[in-house]
Design a protein around this nucleic acid. Sequence first.
DNA 1: GAGTTTATTCCACAACCGTATCATGATGTC
DNA 2: GACATCATGATACGGTTGTGGAATAAACTC
Lengths: 203, 203
Amino acid sequence: MPKRVDHEERRRQIAQALVAVAARQGLHAVGMREVAAEAGVSVRLVQYYFASKDRLFFYAYRYLGEQLGLRIQARVRAAGSRPGPREVLEATLFEGLPDDEASRNMHIVYTAYATLALTDPSMAGHAFVEGPDVLENHLVGQLRAAQDAGEVPGDLDAAAEVAGLLAISAGLGTSVLVGQRDAAAAKRVVTYHLDRIFGPRSG
Amino acid sequence: MPKRVDHEERRRQIAQALVAVAARQGLHAVGMREVAAEAGVSVRLVQYYFASKDRLFFYAYRYLGEQLGLRIQARVRAAGSRPGPREVLEATLFEGLPDDEASRNMHIVYTAYATLALTDPSMAGHAFVEGPDVLENHLVGQLRAAQDAGEVPGDLDAAAEVAGLLAISAGLGTSVLVGQRDAAAAKRVVTYHLDRIFGPRSG
DNA sequence: GAGTTTATTCCACAACCGTATCATGATGTC
DNA sequence: GACATCATGATACGGTTGTGGAATAAACTC
């Protein structure tokens, strides 16, 4: 057997290069050559691990979604060993507000993918529906649990509140991306709305 | 003097063709040839009225923003001869939720422009900051007026509430675009949050 | 009606893109 | 150490793109 390489590892490396290039020049302006250069490999090699550009783009999309999910999980874990509903919600919502260059880059590219899915049939469909749906249902469960525990008024519409919060995070996230406000201001708005539901923090 | 044509009118016609093509295939896949074909003119003519593709794109972006502004105004006027703060807010927020094909197409393209502005330096900057900023400030003024009139609790943070509402509209709007929910469901969520501030409708 | 200016078209060019072909280096087995 | 196989590289090709040049049609003035 000749030289063996971990294909999955190589694919991740190339996908990461794609994200870097896309964050810099926009997803629409990403070409095989730029990705190859960024990854430090030849164009042919990118083609070797991804049969076509479409495949490469789709793989990078899944890779990016996975990374964002991991970042949310890391944030939840950082909130303590036994995070309550508010901590889970806050971790999720804050992750939508890019506050450093790494998260900013990821969100720029993720947003570009979402936009692409609006018109490109090969990317459309379940891609941007299933993921957000399970996340939203999960958070609704968290909020209902908080209601059952008496931490949150029972007359709130948990589904409407969670839908609103997630939309706030997404909407404020893009407003941060375009430079309308900074991440700190966006966090204050999200905290205000969490306080509105859970009552003021630690108070 | 030879044949005279209203240049501005022609530009609008071509910009509209661009929007139609972009809504169908995505802004990234819009070429001069497709725009020309959609507008029923030759490629060279598009170049005649817009010196370059960049200029064409920028013009179409401003045209689209203007059209969206007009749609909001039309909604506000449709709310009655003397619309109160809630009516103004509702008209603005509902406009972010595409419910027919025309508004869906406009929002698809507008979203694509916002994404483009994240990476393209020729489009970035004030473009997506000034417009939303003046809108937001205007709505904060509306909400503060409602507070002064006693229609809304004075202890609410008007700025945070408006920022949240606008983000909700934008976030839910994209969730409608990707097909996560339909416009009716999104409207219910927005109405829930307006009721939370203003109290139940007509009650 | 000749002439000038505007509006419009056809066509070609240079650059770029994704992809395919062919060749080469590397590394394990027998 | 020969061979098979995987990994990688250099390069060429067909197609598409934005753009510019040259020419034609139309309409108004004098």
